[in-house]
Nucleic acid binder design. Structure first.
Lengths: 221, 221
DNA sequence: ACCTGAACACCGTTCAAGT
DNA sequence: ACCTGAACACCGTTCAAGT
């Protein structure tokens, strides 16, 4: 519980936990999650890979710290609208979560693969559940709504970042979809909806889904 | 376009595309996605790893075929309720998608990491968009709804399988969450909602979120 | 035509040994 | 106390060579 910390006896450390997450997030932005390896991260920090394990016991633990860092300040950024309605405050919070995930390359993938219990994540959960409880929803409905909003937002952002990642060369995914849908006559409905299907305005799409959820909540109140 | 197929000259092949996906899905169920390597799969098929590349150019292509296989028959399983209302038919379809992902260990992770354009996936999309278009929704709203329902379902099932996977030892995740929420007094709302938060009835949670979306759609019609 | 064998360029993680 | 060096047990993918 106090290996790389407190007194400061012996040699000063060249790296620490905070510098490691920061460098990892930088590397993530530059190269993407698949290229974020312990060896490359160590390289970027001028150290051998084994040295990282003095600060994070596993790569998974580092990824969790990265998620937590990404969520730092998300809740704070979504207040100030304290006089707004519960539905507006809920929507602001959801948009703030999406924005935080979009702020880093593969942010949604990193977040989806971890389960932080730090103040970033729990503060967000507290704020969202608080808004709904104070609006009159039951404890259960508030908890279920948290999961619904979070799962939708993460699922949506996962797709968005997969579709727009530089890794997945250009417009290849959309082109394959268009070809599959337009060749043959098996998908009449998809053909009619093709333009909305293949020119995905992600902002609009997210706002649409979030509005569905909010309207559903209003109907339940 | 015809390397491992058609005539049948030379030695008969010991493996093929269909057997490869089937064995891969079996291995997935037994060992999980992280243990599904090309070498282990080759072992299970009594062949060297390099041999697999005659049938699937990359592991990603194999994973896409696995996704497509998982989706085979999903749409068919969700009809028969042809006289039901559009909202019932939509819900049935969403439940069928979730069921298909839950049917395989790490099914949601496999599905989320691929973008099949086969009949399984596109047939599902066609059915969902068809239900909404015929119910009177615009082409755009039908397309946006497809993404919303799919993203919510995949996001939800991703969380569900992460929480229930044998890999993530027992109840560790829930215990950590409970400890973090109950220690200190930073999360009054989460404490009130703790039972619903930590004893997640996933069936109920999914039905709740889906109902929110459906109610939101009804309000929009 | 189909598969083997062996290699290439990597991984995450551990740990004795140096300073 | 902190980090290096080197190893362990793997990866995905390629490709000449055998049959």
């Amino acid at each position: 519980m106090s290996s790389p910390s407190t007194p400061a006896r012996g040699r000063p450390s060249r790296i620490d936990r905070a510098l490691t997450v920061r460098t990892a997030l930088d590397l993530l932005d530059r190269s993407g999650l698949d290229a974020l390896t312990m060896r490359r991260l160590a390289d970027a920090m001028g150290v051998q890979a084994g040295a990282l394990y003095r600060y994070y016991a596993t790569k998974q633990e580092l990824l969790t710290a990265m998620s937590e860092q990404m969520m730092e300040g998300v809740t704070a950024s979504a207040v100030g609208t304290d006089d707004a309605s519960w539905s507006e405050r809920l929507a602001t919070l959801a948009h703030a979560l999406r924005k935080a995930l979009l702020a880093r390359r593969d942010g949604a993938r990193v977040f989806a693969g971890t389960h932080s219990t730090g103040v970033g994540v729990l503060g967000f959960a507290e704020a969202l559940v608080g808004i709904l409880r104070e609006a009159g929803f039951s404890d259960d409905d508030a908890a279920l709504s948290l999961y619904t909003v979070a799962n939708f937002t993460v699922g949506h952002t996962l797709e968005e970042q997969a579709a727009t990642d530089p890794e997945n060369g250009g417009t290849t995914g959309v082109e394959k979809l268009r070809n599959a849908v337009t060749s043959g006559s098996d998908y009449p409905h998809l053909n009619r909806a093709l333009s909305a299907l293949t020119s995905p305005d992600f902002d609009r799409n997210f706002a649409f889904g979030l509005d569905l959820l909010v309207e559903g909540l209003k109907a339940r109140l």
